[in-house]
Design a protein around this nucleic acid. Structure first.
Lengths: 140, 140
DNA sequence: GTCTTAAATAGGAATTATTCTAATATAGGA
DNA sequence: TCCTATATTAGAATAATTCCTATTTAAGAC
């Protein structure tokens, strides 16, 4: 992943966006925090580490980055949106108890599903992306 | 589905819940409205059709019905929770453009996935349920 | 390096979804 | 019919997100 600032700046710039300190800070926070932070966590991180940033700006930046496909929104059972810096295809494990979300990559499963939808078409629907949400609980 | 009032009352009662007019109205609304209504849509429907109902009650009832497995919460990319009266295993088609959610049942696919996870275990995770979210767009 | 301007941000108010609270009402068993 | 635990009401409170407008700034042009 794009862990250093130069790469982050480059990612933003390549998407045709102005490289502002706020955008860099938000994207850096998402990469550093990992584990699908909320807007709130991102703000907290930025305010702790760096400078001040307006709440509205966080949401603006997140929206912009999402539009450009640099980050993704993550679905949750709760009403708070979360953000994910990994945009390669992957799935999520949702723990009912702890509300943790963990990434789950499984190329074999992807392959099986891709093959399945190659032969089977859904009428009147054009498939872009398939995400699998696996609910259960983490054993410790 | 349980379309008539007698069945709805029975569903609520069998779950060990008191059969109140509000619970009946909410569940009826979910069945009648279909298409995964929001709490707001449910309230609108009830206020139009029947009597008044407190907003807090809608949320209370939805929570209670969800706990008993009579309805399910549906994940969305937006921050508004939606509710589903169908609790048999099924998946959802999400349209990026119209934000419509359509049910998608596919027993063949379920079978493939069930078999897959029979042989492949995810370390430290106990799987309860697998949901597939298919993003794309409806062709008209 | 300076200028220019379209685009971005700040700060705070406004909105929206949801939860909470305490007072009142009621379902359903005794 | 009565009793009581549970549910509902109305409205206040909270939390997440969006909106608004004045100010600032990135980056391309000069």
């Amino acid at each position: 992943m794009k862990l250093n600032i130069a790469n982050i700046r480059n990612t933003i710039s390549t998407a045709g966006l102005k490289v502002t300190p706020q955008r860099v800070a938000v994207l850096e926070a998402i990469y550093k925090l990992g584990n699908h932070p909320t807007a709130d966590k991102i703000q907290e991180y930025i305010r702790g580490e760096h400078s001040n940033i307006a709440t509205g700006t966080i949401y603006n930046v997140l929206e912009t980055l999402t539009e450009k496909g640099i980050i993704k929104k993550v679905l949750t059972d709760k009403d708070v949106m979360r953000y994910d810096g990994i945009t390669e295809s992957h799935h999520h494990l949702y723990c009912r108890k702890t509300e943790k979300i963990k990434d789950y990559q499984d190329t074999e499963l992807d392959e099986i599903i891709r093959n399945y939808f190659k032969k089977k078409r859904i009428p009147n629907f054009e498939v872009d992306e398939i995400k699998i949400q696996i609910n259960g609980k983490f054993k410790k």
